Simulated scan of single mutants.
Amino acid sequence: MTEFAETVDRAFAAALYAQDDAGLDTGASVLAADPARWGGVGRELLARGEAYVRQAWERGWQPADVLRLVRRDLDGLHLEITADLVAAEARRYARLPERWTDAEVWWDEDGAYAEQLARRVKADRFTLATAVLEVMRLLIRLPSIEPVGPLPGDLTEQAHAHIEPRMLGRIRALLAKAEATTYPEEAEALSAKAQELMARHTVDEALLAARGGGPAQVPAACRIGVEPPYEEAKAVLLDAVATANRCRAVWNSGFEFSTVVGFESDLEAVELLHTSLLVQGTAAMTRAEAAQRAGGRKRTKTFRQSFLLAYASRLGRRLAETAEHTATEAADNLPALVARDVAVTSRAEEMFPRTTTTRLRGATDHAGWEDGTAAADAAHVGAGRRRPPLP
């Protein structure tokens, strides 16, 4: 064991397993005591951090999940350190799983990491050592969760059909325009066309698989962040979008994400549509608040919560109707789509054999509910046809 490893062991023994923060100061002092040894200590900390993030991956976590937790529980310096650990661990693999990380190693070599990080974030050794120990403490305390894909280095050649790149580009462009426009009718037409492309692709893919075209596919899974504020409404919206796109969503409120199970192209559709509708809903909420203020009524958190719950609830009903209409346009499509639904349901039940329902906080602001309902009606996401208002 090197002298640097011994130093890090002493710091970890003092800081990582203590129930209070007193040990953090002791551990940080051990790490930062000798400036001449700072480079070697930094190299050892980086190596330990790589091992800890690998342990997190083996427990089912992915980089975005860990970064989300660090962002919630710590601060920006810790977030940068965690991203560096992810990048350092990822460099050992020739290939990474989908949706893994785009973090890159920016430092010259590992022995220079600590000094270069100090200059980069303008922090002293003690501050950096404390932050590193807090990140390590969070990593070692992560529990096991349901894995949603292979580990880096353990990739298997599982067939997944993605949305064709040109179509994906068209969908993204349509949704971006829908988010940017201030004209409801234009946003309505753009969102409708994007949803239509997504729905048609799902039907085509199901029919191709039923006829034995292409390699056999199985459902996959991904995680989508569901973060405060108004996380309950966001989870309801995500569940509605997932259901409409023949996926299943399971919300983990404690770790602020939902796991979505479905075929890969449908997962891509869920990510795109959920993000776009959330952007549109937030913008509509801001406009509604401005209108309420102009009328002399002060808006509150209860207004925003009620607005987004109504928006998610009404959109859920509308998305379900749109999905049903698209699926039943041709009766020959139904057996292939049913087989797809069965496969997704089986995979979701295998991953989550025990789930519970959650009682949502009620919508207590009538004006917020009414405005949210109206905003959902304006966010047309059907298959290109106007529908009568819901009763």
Results as ranks from 00 to 15, higher is better:
residue 147 P to E: 10
residue 148 V to I: 15
residue 148 V to K: 03
residue 148 V to E: 12
residue 149 G to H: 13
residue 149 G to C: 09
residue 150 P to T: 03
residue 150 P to S: 08
residue 151 L to T: 03
residue 151 L to S: 04
residue 152 P to Y: 03
residue 152 P to C: 00
residue 152 P to I: 02
residue 152 P to F: 01
residue 153 G to E: 11
residue 154 D to T: 09
residue 154 D to N: 10
residue 154 D to M: 08
residue 155 L to T: 05
residue 156 T to D: 09
residue 156 T to P: 00
residue 156 T to C: 01
residue 156 T to Y: 03
residue 157 E to H: 08
residue 157 E to P: 00
residue 157 E to I: 01
residue 158 Q to N: 05
residue 158 Q to R: 11
residue 160 H to A: 13
residue 161 A to D: 03
residue 161 A to M: 02
residue 161 A to L: 08
residue 162 H to Y: 06
residue 162 H to W: 08
residue 165 P to L: 03
residue 165 P to Q: 06
residue 166 R to G: 02
residue 166 R to V: 15
residue 168 L to E: 15
residue 169 G to K: 07
residue 169 G to P: 08
residue 170 R to K: 13
residue 172 R to Q: 06
residue 172 R to E: 11
residue 173 A to F: 12
residue 173 A to E: 15
residue 173 A to G: 14
residue 174 L to W: 07
residue 174 L to M: 06
residue 174 L to G: 04
residue 174 L to I: 03
residue 175 L to Y: 12
residue 177 K to N: 12
residue 178 A to N: 09
residue 179 E to H: 06
residue 180 A to L: 06
residue 180 A to K: 15
residue 180 A to R: 15
residue 180 A to P: 05
residue 180 A to C: 05
residue 181 T to M: 05
residue 181 T to S: 14
residue 182 T to C: 06
residue 182 T to P: 01
residue 182 T to G: 14
residue 182 T to Y: 10
residue 184 P to W: 13
residue 184 P to N: 13
residue 184 P to K: 15
residue 184 P to S: 14
residue 184 P to H: 14
residue 185 E to R: 07
residue 185 E to M: 02
residue 185 E to Q: 08
residue 186 E to C: 04
residue 187 A to T: 09
residue 188 E to R: 15
residue 188 E to T: 06
residue 190 L to Q: 10
residue 190 L to T: 04
residue 191 S to I: 00
residue 192 A to C: 12
residue 192 A to D: 12
residue 192 A to N: 14
residue 193 K to R: 15
residue 193 K to I: 03
residue 193 K to S: 13
residue 193 K to Q: 15
residue 193 K to T: 13
residue 196 E to I: 00
residue 197 L to E: 05
residue 198 M to H: 12
residue 199 A to C: 03
residue 199 A to T: 09
residue 200 R to K: 03
residue 200 R to E: 06
residue 201 H to E: 04
residue 202 T to L: 09
residue 202 T to I: 08
residue 203 V to G: 04
residue 203 V to C: 08
residue 205 E to F: 02
residue 206 A to D: 13
residue 207 L to V: 10
residue 207 L to Y: 00
residue 208 L to A: 15
residue 210 A to F: 00
residue 211 R to W: 04
residue 211 R to G: 09
residue 211 R to Y: 07
residue 212 G to W: 11
residue 212 G to V: 11
residue 213 G to V: 09
residue 214 G to H: 13
residue 215 P to T: 09
residue 216 A to P: 01
residue 216 A to E: 10
residue 216 A to H: 04
residue 217 Q to Y: 02
